[in-house]
Structures are given as C-alpha cells and as structure tokens.
Deep mutational scan, measured.
Amino acid sequence: MDTYKLILNGKTLKGETTTEAVDAATAEKVFKHYANEHGVHGHWTYDPETKTFTSTE
C-alpha cells in the first residue's frame, strides 16, 4: 500500500488529508467521497510523481 495525499482548495473548506491505498484509482474514490461529504465539488488533478490529488473550486 502507498500513501496518497489530497489538497482541498474549496470555497468553504481548505486543507489536506492522506489515505493508504493499493493504487491511485482507489485513493481517488476515497478522496472524492471525502470531498463530496464536505461539500467540495471542484476540478480534480493528480500528480503521479508525488501521489497528490488536488481539488479546486
């Protein structure tokens, strides 16, 4: 398992979190669920070199 990072740049919520996942697709599902639960619906990007997802509203 690898550690993946999420950076949230929402209108009402900003911050970072991490998750352990078997691959990027699994981490993306976890992070999108997390963002949706916190009302963040933004544009998603992923940097495979740093294993970092960013959601920007």
Rank of each mutant, 00 (worst) to 15 (best):
K51A: 03
E20G: 04
S55C: 15
K5S: 05
W44G: 00
T19I: 15
T19L: 13
T26V: 07
H33S: 13
K51H: 07
V30L: 11
E37Y: 09
Y34V: 04
T3Q: 08
E20T: 12
A24H: 07
K14C: 14
E49C: 11
V30N: 06
T12A: 10
G42P: 04
T3P: 03
L6M: 04
T50Q: 06
K29W: 08
W44S: 01
T54W: 10
T17Y: 15
T45F: 08
K11H: 13
K14A: 08
A21Y: 01
G10C: 09
H41D: 12
F53K: 00
G15N: 10
E49Q: 12
K29F: 08
H43D: 14
H38G: 04
V22I: 13
T3D: 04
H33D: 13
W44I: 06
V40H: 10
A21C: 07
T56D: 12
G10Y: 12
S55R: 04
D47H: 06
G39P: 01
H38Y: 10
T50R: 06
T12F: 14
M1N: 08
T45M: 08
Y46N: 00
D23W: 02
N36K: 14
Y34R: 02
K32Y: 06
N9E: 09
L6W: 05
L8C: 09
N9Y: 13
T45D: 09
N36E: 15
T17N: 05
T45C: 09
V40S: 04
K5H: 11
S55F: 15
T19S: 04
I7R: 05
T19N: 03
H43I: 15
L8S: 02
E49M: 12
Y46F: 08
Y4N: 02
K14Y: 13
A27Y: 00
P48F: 07
T56K: 06
E28I: 08
E57T: 05
Y4Q: 02
K14P: 04
G15D: 11
E28Q: 09
T56S: 09
K5Q: 04
T12L: 11
E28K: 07
L13W: 15
A35C: 03
A25Y: 10
E16V: 13
I7C: 07
K32W: 09
W44T: 03
L13F: 15
G15I: 15
K32M: 10
W44Q: 01
L8E: 02
H41F: 15
T54F: 10
I7K: 05
A24W: 13
E20P: 05
G10M: 07
E20W: 12
T54M: 10
K5T: 14
E57C: 05
K29A: 12
A27Q: 00
Y4M: 02
V40L: 09
D2Q: 15
A27N: 00
K51V: 01
G10K: 03
M1P: 09
E16K: 07
T45A: 10
A25I: 11
N9V: 13
T19R: 04
T50I: 06
E57A: 05
H33C: 10
K14S: 11
F31I: 00
P48V: 08
A24C: 14
T12C: 15
F53N: 00
H41G: 09
T45E: 11
L6C: 09
E49G: 11
E49F: 11
G42E: 04
N36C: 13
I7V: 10
T18C: 11
A27S: 01
H41A: 11
T19Y: 12
K11S: 10
Y46L: 01
E20A: 10
P48N: 07
K29T: 09
K11N: 11
T45I: 07
E20C: 14
Y34D: 01
F31R: 00
A27V: 01
T18E: 08
H38I: 12
K32C: 08
D2L: 12
Y46G: 00
Y34N: 00
E16L: 08
G10A: 05
T50E: 06
T52G: 00
P48M: 07
K32S: 05
A21S: 06
T26K: 05
T26E: 13
D47E: 09
T3C: 13
V40I: 11
T12E: 10
G42H: 04
F53V: 00
K29S: 10
N9C: 15
T50V: 06
T52F: 02
T54Y: 13
S55E: 04
T3S: 06
A24L: 09
S55Y: 10
A27D: 01
K14N: 09
G42N: 03
K32F: 08
D2N: 14
V22H: 11
E37S: 12
E37C: 12
V30C: 07
H41L: 11
K14T: 11
T26N: 08
E16M: 11
G42D: 04
D47F: 06
W44C: 03
H43Q: 13
F31G: 00
Y4T: 02
E16P: 03
F31C: 01
G42W: 14
K29I: 12
L6A: 03
T56Y: 09
V30P: 00
G15F: 15
K5P: 02
K29M: 12
V30H: 12
E37I: 13
T12M: 11
E16Q: 10
S55I: 15
A27M: 01
A21D: 01
Y46D: 00
T52A: 04
D23S: 07
W44R: 00
H43T: 15
V30E: 08
K51R: 13
K32Q: 10
T19V: 14
T3Y: 06
W44H: 01
E57N: 04
T17E: 05
T52L: 04
L6F: 08
T54L: 07
T52S: 04
N36R: 14
N9K: 10
K51T: 02
A35P: 01
K29V: 11
T17I: 15
K14G: 06
F53A: 00
A27H: 01
S55L: 15
K11Q: 12
T52V: 07
E28N: 04
V22F: 12
K5N: 05
G39F: 06
T54E: 06
T50L: 07
V30G: 03
E57Q: 05
M1W: 13
Y34K: 02
Y46H: 01
V22D: 07
L8D: 01
